[in-house]
Deep mutational scan, measured.
Amino acid sequence: MGFKLLSKLLVYLTASIMAIASPLAFSVDSSGEYPTVSEIPVGEVRLYQIADGVWSHIATQSFDGAVYPSNGLIVRDGDELLLIDTAWGAKNTAALLAEIEKQIGLPVTRAVSTHFHDDRVGGVDVLRAAGVATYASPSTRRLAEVEGNEIPTHSLEGLSSSGDAVRFGPVELFYPGAAHSTDNLIVYVPSASVLYGGCAIYELSRTSAGNVADADLAEWPTSIERIQQHYPEAQFVIPGHGLPGGLDLLKHTTNVVKAHTNRSVVE
């Protein structure tokens, strides 16, 4: 069995187990497998329904001669939608809004960016022009300005110390501490036991640490421990890039980060 097929099978099995364990909360999309990078042309966006009122959005972007996937989250909030992270750029984010209108038909009224990198804030200006209120932590807003990236308009308070959590509509926002970046936030959907790890969490097929220019490698494993301790009931975990899975993604990420750190020390 090929690795790609095995990865998709694991996603399907995880979703099936969740649907059985929580039949009222989960209505997993039966329309197909989780979209992969090879299936999404740059400039297009796919939506994948995880649970009743919960979707991931998947886009792709060219970077350094390669094409990478990027995940975000959409959560229903009454007759409105909360968006977590842009679709990595203005063109993708405009396509995301169009796809949401086509498939869901509810307005996106608020959006949260989970850290300051372009795959999370690139497209904020498109959201703002569409009347979406954009939010991020003060740290993310400051770092985005320093980096020359787009800056969300509103500040999220109460997320300055490791372990801080605040309720934001249908989700809980959690600051686990520094990891992929010093400002990275985690998003949890309690009604569906869905954990969105953003770039602080890796997919299972990833074996290298990737972009760690703004990471705190020493603190990252401790931050992941905080996530595990705060959300032990999480059933569906979405990484910032690639295929979702279960809580095993947290341990896998820790292993990859520690291996990278150990290699760096040896070198």
Results as ranks from 00 to 15, higher is better:
172 E>L: 05
100 I>R: 01
256 V>A: 04
146 V>E: 13
61 Q>A: 13
243 L>F: 10
36 T>W: 15
92 N>Y: 04
152 P>L: 03
184 N>W: 01
84 I>W: 01
48 Y>I: 15
76 R>H: 07
221 P>R: 08
196 Y>D: 03
213 A>K: 11
144 A>V: 09
199 C>L: 01
225 E>T: 13
20 I>L: 11
53 G>M: 08
34 Y>M: 15
63 F>P: 05
13 L>C: 13
235 Q>N: 13
1 M>D: 01
82 L>N: 04
51 A>R: 07
219 E>L: 08
18 M>A: 10
185 L>E: 02
89 G>E: 00
24 L>C: 07
113 S>F: 05
54 V>P: 02
150 E>H: 05
210 G>F: 04
51 A>G: 09
141 R>W: 03
85 D>F: 00
137 S>I: 07
100 I>F: 05
103 Q>V: 12
239 P>W: 00
43 G>M: 06
222 T>F: 14
166 V>C: 04
87 A>G: 04
222 T>D: 13
215 A>D: 06
29 D>S: 08
86 T>Q: 00
228 Q>T: 15
238 I>N: 03
44 E>P: 06
224 I>T: 05
152 P>V: 02
25 A>V: 12
13 L>P: 07
30 S>P: 08
181 S>A: 07
167 R>V: 11
113 S>E: 03
213 A>C: 07
102 K>A: 12
78 G>W: 06
11 V>L: 06
260 H>F: 07
150 E>K: 05
229 Q>I: 14
172 E>M: 07
9 L>M: 10
136 A>M: 04
29 D>R: 09
92 N>I: 03
238 I>F: 05
15 A>C: 14
39 E>L: 15
150 E>R: 00
6 L>T: 06
161 S>R: 14
163 G>L: 07
247 L>D: 09
107 P>Y: 07
70 S>C: 02
1 M>N: 03
229 Q>D: 14
32 G>F: 15
84 I>C: 03
162 S>G: 14
247 L>E: 11
130 A>N: 11
53 G>D: 13
178 A>H: 09
215 A>Q: 07
206 R>N: 15
179 A>T: 07
112 V>R: 04
70 S>A: 03
101 E>A: 14
91 K>H: 12
7 S>N: 08
89 G>R: 03
127 L>C: 00
169 G>M: 03
81 L>D: 00
48 Y>L: 15
223 S>C: 03
170 P>L: 06
225 E>G: 11
122 G>I: 05
79 D>M: 12
227 I>N: 05
36 T>R: 11
265 V>Y: 10
178 A>S: 11
195 L>D: 00
58 I>S: 14
83 L>I: 09
177 G>N: 02
91 K>I: 14
28 V>E: 08
161 S>V: 14
239 P>Y: 03
168 F>E: 03
114 T>W: 00
250 L>P: 04
202 Y>R: 07
76 R>M: 11
84 I>M: 07
144 A>L: 13
246 G>S: 12
59 A>R: 05
51 A>S: 08
26 F>D: 13
240 G>L: 04
7 S>K: 09
265 V>P: 10
174 F>L: 09
3 F>N: 15
261 T>L: 11
30 S>V: 13
191 S>C: 05
215 A>E: 06
32 G>K: 07
225 E>V: 13
83 L>H: 00
71 N>A: 07
197 G>L: 02
6 L>H: 07
120 R>H: 06
60 T>Y: 13
242 G>T: 05
179 A>C: 05
195 L>Q: 00
55 W>M: 00
70 S>T: 05
261 T>A: 11
109 T>N: 13
168 F>N: 01
217 L>D: 01
197 G>C: 06
33 E>I: 09
142 R>P: 04
132 V>R: 02
204 L>Q: 13
63 F>R: 06
258 K>M: 11
173 L>G: 03
212 V>I: 10
200 A>L: 10
156 L>T: 04
14 T>L: 08
2 G>D: 10
221 P>Y: 07
216 D>R: 08
249 L>Y: 04
118 D>Q: 07
127 L>G: 01
141 R>Q: 10
242 G>M: 04
135 Y>F: 11
28 V>T: 10
120 R>E: 01
139 S>K: 11
44 E>H: 10
113 S>W: 02
198 G>M: 07
194 V>C: 00
31 S>E: 08
197 G>Y: 01
154 H>D: 11
136 A>Y: 02
153 T>K: 11
103 Q>A: 12
204 L>H: 11
69 P>I: 15
55 W>N: 01
116 F>W: 15
249 L>T: 03
231 Y>T: 00
5 L>A: 12
22 S>K: 08
202 Y>D: 07
152 P>G: 01
84 I>E: 00
115 H>P: 03
24 L>A: 10
140 T>E: 04
73 L>Q: 00
122 G>Q: 09
253 T>W: 01
150 E>M: 02
96 L>V: 04
161 S>H: 14
205 S>F: 12
32 G>A: 10
264 S>D: 12
145 E>M: 13
243 L>I: 13
140 T>F: 04
132 V>P: 00
98 A>I: 10
137 S>Q: 08
110 R>I: 13
46 R>K: 09
55 W>T: 02
128 R>W: 08
110 R>M: 10
35 P>Q: 15
139 S>E: 12
155 S>A: 13
75 V>G: 01
265 V>W: 12
48 Y>Q: 15
245 G>D: 05
112 V>C: 05
119 D>E: 03
178 A>N: 09
26 F>A: 11
99 E>F: 09
146 V>D: 14
46 R>D: 07
64 D>A: 12
30 S>F: 08
66 A>S: 12
26 F>I: 13
44 E>S: 10
223 S>Q: 02
66 A>R: 10
6 L>M: 12
153 T>D: 12
256 V>Y: 04
163 G>Q: 08
76 R>W: 06
266 V>G: 13
120 R>K: 02
37 V>M: 14
8 K>S: 09
152 P>S: 06
66 A>V: 13
244 P>V: 09
215 A>C: 05
113 S>H: 13
180 H>Y: 06
176 P>Q: 02
76 R>I: 08
239 P>D: 01
72 G>N: 02
230 H>E: 11
16 S>K: 06
76 R>Q: 11
236 F>C: 08
117 H>P: 00
80 E>N: 09
69 P>A: 14
193 S>E: 13
52 D>F: 10
71 N>W: 00
155 S>D: 12
